[in-house]
Each structure stands twice: as C-alpha cells, then as structure tokens.
Amino acid sequence: AVSDRLIGRKGVVMEAISPQNSGLVKVDGETWRATSGTVLDVGEEVSVKAIEGVKLVVEKLE
C-alpha cells in the first residue's frame, strides 16, 4: 500500500495530537490524520510507527 512507505519517515505536527484526540502531521509534503500515545504540540518532529486504517501512529522524535 502507498501508506506503507511512510513507516519510519519523519514528519511535523500540524495540529496538536493527544491520546484522546487525533491531529494532523505532514510527512513528505502530504498531510495525514495521526494518533499518538502522548501529547504532541504543533511544530514537534515525529516519526511514523504504524498505520491504522487511514491514520498514522506517530511518536516524538528523540
């Protein structure tokens, strides 16, 4: 699937994400809805860990 190529890629949070609410991330110039187990603020760099349906699962870049 086209989304599989995104796993491991870096992105930037465009709309804040929390465990309760999905947000938006931009990866390779495309905007995706994303979820995370932690709070991520706009502008934070993330990496794509998995894909669930049409949402990316991301975590903060260390």
Rank of each mutant, 00 (worst) to 15 (best):
V12P: 02
V12A: 06
V46S: 02
T31I: 14
D4M: 10
V27F: 03
L24V: 10
A1M: 10
G43T: 07
A34V: 02
P19Y: 13
D28K: 05
S22I: 12
L40I: 12
V25H: 00
E44G: 04
V48M: 02
V27S: 02
V39I: 09
V2W: 04
K60R: 13
M14D: 04
L40S: 03
G43V: 02
K49F: 13
V42Y: 06
K60W: 04
T35P: 01
L40V: 08
D4K: 05
R9C: 05
V58K: 00
I17R: 01
N21A: 13
P19Q: 08
L56H: 01
V27G: 01
S3K: 06
D4G: 08
E45Q: 12
V46A: 05
E15R: 13
D41N: 11
V57C: 05
G8H: 04
R33S: 10
V57P: 00
N21D: 07
T31A: 08
R9F: 13
V25L: 02
S47W: 15
S47P: 01
G11D: 01
V57T: 05
V58D: 00
A34E: 00
K60V: 05
A34Y: 03
G8C: 04
G8M: 03
V46D: 00
E15P: 00
M14F: 12
K60H: 06
D28M: 09
V13L: 03
W32F: 07
V42R: 12
V42P: 09
I51A: 05
V42G: 04
V42D: 05
D41T: 14
R5I: 09
R9G: 04
E62M: 11
V25F: 02
K49E: 05
V54F: 14
S3Q: 11
V42F: 07
E45C: 07
T35M: 13
K26T: 11
G53A: 05
E59A: 12
N21R: 14
K49N: 05
S36Y: 02
G37L: 15
P19T: 05
V27D: 00
A1E: 15
A16P: 09
K26G: 07
S36R: 01
G23K: 01
E59K: 06
K26W: 10
D41F: 15
A34F: 03
D41Q: 15
L40K: 02
P19G: 07
V42E: 06
L40G: 01
K55G: 12
N21P: 02
T35W: 15
S18K: 10
D28Q: 11
L6A: 03
V57W: 14
G37I: 11
E44Y: 06
V54A: 14
L61C: 05
K55T: 15
V48L: 02
L56F: 03
S47I: 14
K55C: 08
V46Q: 00
Q20G: 14
L56V: 07
V42C: 05
I51R: 07
E52N: 09
V2T: 13
E15T: 12
V57N: 04
V48S: 01
G29D: 08
V58L: 03
G23L: 03
G11M: 02
A1V: 14
V2P: 15
E30Q: 08
E52I: 11
A16E: 07
G11A: 08
W32P: 00
S18M: 08
K55Q: 13
E30R: 06
A50Y: 09
G43P: 04
V13N: 00
K49I: 10
K10N: 08
L56A: 03
I7R: 05
D4W: 03
T35S: 10
A50Q: 11
V39T: 14
K55W: 10
E44R: 06
S47C: 06
V46F: 03
T31V: 10
A34Q: 00
L56N: 00
T35N: 08
D41G: 13
